[in-house]
Design a binder for these strands. Structure first.
Lengths: 412, 412
DNA sequence: ATATTTATTTTAGCACCTAAAGTAAATAAA
DNA sequence: TTTATTTACTTTAGGTGCTAAAATAAATAT
């Protein structure tokens, strides 16, 4: 009689099982029960369904069995080919496409140089369609479905409405990109800020498991930030929260790329550091408005080797960061502030000034127990985060889809 | 067989019914169903239980019946005497005690002048015990139980651990007050920041129903703030989030009560305004470090009547607020910033400078659709918020308690 | 009086979950 | 080589809680 189920526990438990398998790899039924606080009888029932739907498979028992006594565990794992997701990272003059499988593994990655600032909204859409189609045609053999697409873009995006509100990589604004891609590829399209993707990956690392309130500051050409509250990215009303780079250091200070004055970014970003240095120091040639990695490394070297002009430039950047972080601590009181991004290359030259400014700015009660740490920028984890977020967002649909295909053939 | 129920839907639905009755007053079963998305059959079942437990009663049908056709609605209402809560507001040199009943109505309120800064932690605990005991003895006749106590204090508190970390009203720190009161009165004790109590009341008003992300700034002797994210107060890792008053305006600016320099509070709080004015203007006599309402009104009058020194003092305060709010918008991107507190008396004299500073500081994309409004400070709503929060926090316990008493006499 | 309308309660049935009992599959011991 | 023990998984039996539909209650309109 009661058809529309109001009780979501079965769905919740099934999703929990899928996520545990994604995070931990192959797991036995009994452990899935313990890990998720459900009985093994329920796990049996859930895994039977998932098995029938083709979303998981039983791993054949291995030759070497280091298990002790008793019936050995039968490990269950996600079928990597049950679905896949694509993440596209959109940054200035470059787009990156990554394909991830249902188990969360990266299957393919490619980069394209594109003069993004020259694109119109239609151009961008056409370009994304083309690149996604191409990658699907080449890479998707064997996948049961394209579950979703994640667009990771620098700038202000509204995830809720799927609209790019403003991005430094684009010359147009307010582009409702998600809906159009969703229509084209018949899958859900997630629009995310790039910093939130990276922060999600970092937060999933065991080192930061005890920091549910995590702030990640990304230094680079510009300055971005992500605030995780209880592990989930804080977006604000329109998605423009956590714009640390445009919070203020000096009310009437240096000119920022945003057009206003005194933003933290106008002191501590690559372009700001290089701008302050260009007149006084001999640095490698190149576009001084968009300094190259080589140019920035040269500048950092000068500061670290004791050049007083370079040192003062980094010290001023450190003071700006110190004031900005003081405000972040006063307003968010996080467990940890993690400073990363390509700009951490110069962090050693900023650190002392940053900490002394911070300590001068805030009484101990407001510093609380917040740790301030930096994190080396080994590789760009944006797309890893995007893949993980896209999978998480689409598990429910994948489940429904496979139920429709296998289970209730009664519908036909 | 399955005794420990893992399904919380019955509890959730029961709490939803109780809260609807508290918010809306008497409601019929069928409307409780619609309002909470549950079937009227379930409401019948839940209300039968609550009726038996004595937490609600059926309101006798009224003489004038303006209803139309059909069987008339039987209205259900909370039994006000089913439980009560006490809220204590602790501020500098004053404590206020308010008693609220189970339906959320204020039953009693009293103020006491206390030199709070002279108290030790033990003194405070003894004082609170004495006052709460007294108020219970006098006011609690007829109440079935004291469900909870809410302590609303200015400053940094850790709700989680029940510890007052720092308060301008107290000369000691890190006082674990909740546990001791809970033990003494055998009820749960909620420790809250006063601004969060006020913001919760404001957020419940229909005018602000469309603002789940609400920032409330409280101007007064000091400057406080509360940030509601999806309607719930944001606390941060240790409860010291939202310390807007100590975010920065000028890195090396005016001296703040916290001991550091350049805080917003050092420009826009009552003490800061009065300090800036005291040397130049003739104002009513009194303690210039703790200006009275009369002194502040005199200063405000001067500014509004065109005195250029007073005007510049308020303009500078407005600029400080403007920069502070710019940072709040960049970092929180709320739906609405509401400025209130006794200090709004001078808001008209600050407003122009505040808005122009804000507009200069932030590009349109980051201003987003956030509204900035002020709200008259008619009366102190701290304790109303505390009562509401305490009731909400203790409904589950009240339910369990009454179940133990009435329903399952089988336990005996 | 009877029909109609609306509110509430009762009934019947479904979708979950869990504990306990049963079964399976291994190792250790006799 | 049986037999006992241990551990994992599955089946069974029973409970909670919800909903739709039917039944009942209590009004007004005809």
């Amino acid at each position: 009689m009661a058809l529309p189920s109001t009780d979501t526990s079965r769905l919740d438990n099934t999703l929990a099982v899928i996520r545990t398998l994604r995070d931990q790899g192959p797991v036995a039924r009994i452990d899935l029960g313990t890990l998720n606080g459900i009985s093994s009888a329920t796990v049996t029932s859930i895994s039977a369904e998932l098995l029938q739907q083709g979303l998981i498979s039983e791993r054949p028992p291995e030759a070497p069995r280091p298990t002790g006594r008793g019936r050995p565990k039968t490990l269950i794992e996600l079928d990597p080919n049950a679905a896949c997701v694509v993440c596209i990272k959109l940054s200035i003059n470059e787009i990156q496409l990554v394909v991830g499988d249902f188990s969360g593994q990266v299957r393919h990655s490619e980069h394209h140089a594109v003069t993004t600032l020259a694109l119109s909204a239609d151009d961008l859409e056409a370009l994304l369609e083309e690149k996604i189609s191409a990658v699907c045609a080449l890479q998707l053999k064997g996948f049961q479905r394209l579950a979703g697409i994640c667009l990771a873009v620098q700038g202000v995006v509204s995830s809720q409405s799927g609209t790019i509100i403003w991005s430094p990589a684009l010359s147009f604004r307010n582009a409702p990109i998600s809906a159009r891609l969703a229509e084209r590829f018949h899958c859900s399209v997630l629009l995310e800020n790039d910093a939130n993707c990276i922060a999600s990956v970092l937060a999933a690392q065991p080192d930061y498991a005890d920091c549910p309130n995590l702030v990640v500051i990304m230094l680079g050409y510009g300055i971005g930030m992500s605030v995780l509250i209880n592990g989930v990215p804080f977006l604000g009303a329109n998605g423009s929260a956590a714009e640390f780079g445009h919070s203020k250091y000096q009310p009437d200070g240096a000119l920022c790329a945003c057009g206003r004055r005194g933003c933290i970014e106008a002191y501590a970003s690559d372009y700001a550091l290089y701008r302050a240095a260009a007149d006084h120091l001999a640095l490698p040639p190149g576009d001084s408005a968009h300094p190259s990695e080589q140019q920035m490394q040269a500048l950092t070297q000068l500061a670290l080797q004791g050049d007083s002009v370079a040192q003062e430039i980094y010290a001023e950047a450190g003071r700006a960061l110190g004031v900005g972080i003081a405000n972040v601590l006063a307003l968010f009181n996080p467990d940890l502030v993690l400073i990363t991004g390509s700009g951490v290359r110069g962090f050693d030259a900023m650190q002392a000034a940053m900490h002394s400014t911070l300590n001068e700015a805030l009484v101990a009660e407001l510093m609380g127990t917040t740790r301030i740490e930096s994190c080396a920028w080994d590789r760009d984890m944006t797309c890893m985060g995007g893949i993980a977020m896209a999978l998480n967002a689409t598990d429910g649909e994948t489940l429904l889809d496979s139920q429709a295909k296998s289970g209730s053939a009664t519908c036909l």
